[in-house]
C-alpha cells in the first residue's frame, strides 16, 4: 500500500504553497474576523449555531471545498498532466480516493479551526462552549469530505467543474435548499446541520434529523463511485 500515500503526497504538493492556499486562508479567516467584531462590541450572542450555519456551512465551507475539490483532479485533467498518473498500473478508484482525501483534509484543516475559533468568540457567557464547538466542528469536518468528493466528481464529469460547482453551491445549497421544503433531503448543508444537531441538539435545529448520517453516507459513496467510474473511462483527446 504505497500507492495511496504517493498520490496523496503529490496532490498535496500541487494544492498547497500557492496563491490558492493563501486565498483560502483569507476566506477561512472571514468568520473569525466577524467573531472578533462581534466580541469587540458585545458579550457574544445566543444564536451561535444558526449564525455559523449561515456563515460557514452555507458559504465558506462549500467555497473552500469547491476550490480544493476541483483543483485536486480537475485542473490536471484540464492541462493534460494527469496523463502521467493515468498511465500507471494503479486503480482509478485509488486515485480518486487519494485526491478526495487530500482535498477534504485541506478543506477541514481550514474550515474546522475557523469554525471553532469563531464559535468561541461568538459564544455568550454561560453558553455550552464545549457542546457548540464539538458539534459544529464534527459537522464541518464531515461536510468538508462530502463537499470535496462532490466537487471532485463534478470536475471529472465536466471541464466546467468550477463554474457548475459555484452555481450549485450558491444557488442550490445557498438559496433553494434553504427556502423550499422537501429539497433539504438533497442538501449537504442540511446533512451538516443534522449531524451538528445529532451531537448537540440545542446548538441548531434540523429538518432531516437523524437521517442526516445515512443521507450523507449515501451522498459520499455515490459521489466517489461516480468519480471512480468516470475516471476509469476517462478519454484523453489529442490534438488531431
Amino acid at each position: 500500500m504505497t500507492i495511496f500515500p504517493e498520490v496523496a503526497r503529490v496532490t498535496l504538493r500541487a494544492l498547497v504553497g500557492r496563491r490558492r492556499t493563501v486565498l483560502m486562508l483569507l476566506l477561512a479567516g472571514v468568520p473569525i474576523l466577524v467573531g472578533l467584531l462581534v466580541r469587540a462590541n458585545s458579550d457574544g450572542i445566543a444564536e451561535v449555531g444558526p449564525t455559523l450555519d449561515g456563515l460557514v456551512v452555507r458559504i465558506i465551507l462549500p467555497l473552500v471545498a469547491l476550490v480544493f475539490g476541483t483543483a485536486a483532479l480537475g485542473s490536471e485533467l484540464e492541462d493534460g498532466s494527469a496523463v502521467h498518473l493515468l498511465t500507471k498500473p494503479i486503480s482509478r478508484t485509488t486515485i480518486v480516493l487519494a485526491k478526495v482525501a487530500v482535498a477534504g483534509t485541506l478543506t477541514a484543516a481550514l474550515t474546522v479551526p475557523s469554525t471553532i475559533v469563531t464559535a468561541i468568540l461568538l459564544a455568550e457567557p454561560g453558553a455550552d462552549v464545549v457542546g457548540i464547538t464539538v458539534s459544529l466542528g464534527i459537522g464541518v469536518f464531515a461536510g468538508s469530505y462530502l463537499y470535496a468528493s462532490i466537487f471532485a466528481a463534478l470536475s471529472i464529469l465536466t471541464s466546467r467543474g468550477l463554474l457548475l460547482g459555484l452555481g450549485y453551491a450558491l444557488i442550490w445549497e445557498g438559496l433553494l435548499a434553504g427556502l423550499l421544503p422537501g429539497t433539504q433531503v438533497f442538501s449537504v448543508r442540511e446533512y451538516v446541520r443534522g449531524i451538528v444537531h445529532l451531537v448537540s441538539p440545542s446548538v441548531i435545529d434540523s429538518v432531516v434529523g437523524n437521517a442526516a448520517v445515512p443521507y450523507a453516507a449515501i451522498a459520499l459513496v455515490a459521489a466517489l463511485a461516480i468519480a471512480s467510474y468516470r475516471l476509469a473511462t476517462y478519454e484523453v483527446r489529442g490534438s488531431d
Binding site: V10, R13, A14, G80, V83, H84
Partner: peptide
C-alpha cells in the same frame, strides 16, 4: 509493461 510519452508538454511543474 507499457510506457507512454504524450505529446502535450504538461508535467507536474511543482516537482
Amino acid at each position: 509493461f507499457v510506457g507512454l510519452v504524450p505529446e502535450r508538454e504538461a508535467v507536474y511543474d511543482f516537482l
